[in-house]
């Protein structure tokens, strides 16, 4: 599963970092999404999908 993030759309709500900190972090300055890895860790596909659903601004996607 490939993960993508768009920091221009991100509003820094932090839902991804709260849901799956192994994959999603937030930048120090703007609080926008930082991808720690671009593929879902094994067995974490469901959590990645949950993070995508919880994102309020549609800044992350997974396919």
């Amino acid at each position: 599963m490939k993960i993508k993030a768009d920091t221009t759309v991100c509003i820094g709500a932090g839902m991804c970092a709260l849901t799956l900190p192994e994959v999603f972090d937030q930048s120090e300055d703007e609080g926008t999404v930082v991808l720690l890895r671009e593929t879902a860790p094994e067995g974490q596909e469901e959590a990645v999908r949950r993070a995508v659903t919880l994102c309020p601004s549609g800044a992350i996607s997974a396919s």
């Binding site: 509003i11 820094g12 709500a13 932090g14 970092a17 709260l18 900190p21 972090d25 937030q26 930048s27 120090e28 300055d29 703007e30 609080g31 926008t32």
Partner: peptide, 12 residues
Amino acid sequence: YRKLLTGQFTVR
């Protein structure tokens, strides 16, 4: 405005 503030309210 939001981008000036989000860094202050991150999960970390």
